[in-house]
């Protein structure tokens, strides 16, 4: 029985990891673009972006999943997500990417704005271009400063993926819960916690290593 449960949970876990990884792949760069937008000098760029961030951070991710999945069908009277498992996974992915990109953008913004003006000015008086200053001076300092809040947010994402089951994405909690109906046992659901723990444990080690690597300067 234990073997069967483990196999079944692993299958769900694969979806969890896929959702997690793809969210990062898209949300990390999208967040940077959003952060530049939220710092733009022009209000026509900055204000709509700030508005989006407010909406996304101000409402539950659970609700966003439902709206993104069901919304287009109700409003546009058409199914934009396609049918079946893949359609629901795609809708969940979009919701996660938008949500996490907004959170990441605020972390990027905090990191970029925490770099003293003197760093830019020192580069300027040495005749560097804006691009050179950002790439050679600012970027690594920003990365160093955002690693701790980023790791926090990314570990939260591991567990947030479980929300996708609200639109019937078969992630690991779904797999565990299925045993309650089919076999009348609840321990597989509890057992899913081990998977989360191992995964977030690995991430913790990874981020710790990165922090150590960047510890050569202050």
């Amino acid at each position: 029985m234990f073997y069967t449960v483990t196999l079944s949970l692993l299958e769900g876990f694969l979806t969890t990891v896929k959702l997690f990884a793809l969210t990062l792949v898209f949300a990390l760069p999208l967040g940077l673009i959003i952060s530049f937008g939220s710092m733009n000098r022009l209000p026509v760029v900055r204000l709509p972006i700030r508005f989006l961030i407010w909406i996304v951070r101000g409402t539950p991710l659970l609700l966003q999943l439902l709206i993104i999945y069901y919304g287009p069908g109700i409003i546009l009277k058409m199914n934009v997500w396609g049918s079946g498992d893949e359609g629901r996974f795609l809708a969940a992915l979009v919701a996660f990417v938008v949500n996490y990109a907004c959170y990441f953008s605020e972390i990027y913004r905090g990191g970029i704005q925490s770099i003293p003006v003197g760093q830019y000015e020192a580069g300027q008086v040495l005749g560097m271009t804006r691009t050179q200053i950002f790439r050679r001076i600012i970027l690594l300092q920003v990365i160093k400063r955002i690693v701790p809040p980023m790791s926090n947010e990314i570990i939260t994402l591991v567990k947030d993926t479980s929300l996708a089951r609200v639109i019937a994405v078969y992630e690991i909690i779904w797999s565990g819960q299925a045993f309650i109906k089919s076999a009348g046992i609840i321990w597989p659901l509890f057992y899913t916690g081990v998977f989360y723990l191992v995964f977030s444990g690995l991430l913790t080690v990874l981020f710790h290593t990165i922090e150590k690597k960047l510890g050569f300067f202050r």
């Binding site: 003197g118 760093q119 020192a122 300027q124 005749g127 560097m128 271009t129 690594l140 300092q141 300067f217």
Partner: peptide, 30 residues
């Protein structure tokens, strides 16, 4: 502006060294 400002050099009150570079790298970068 970049070409023109190179007539001048500026030493800041708060140094503004680049923290991720060694002393030598700070001098060599520009």
């Amino acid at each position: 502006i970049r070409r023109k400002r190179l007539h001048f050099g500026l030493v800041f009150q708060s140094f503004n060294l680049f923290p991720q570079y060694t002393a030598l790298e700070n001098v060599m970068l520009a």
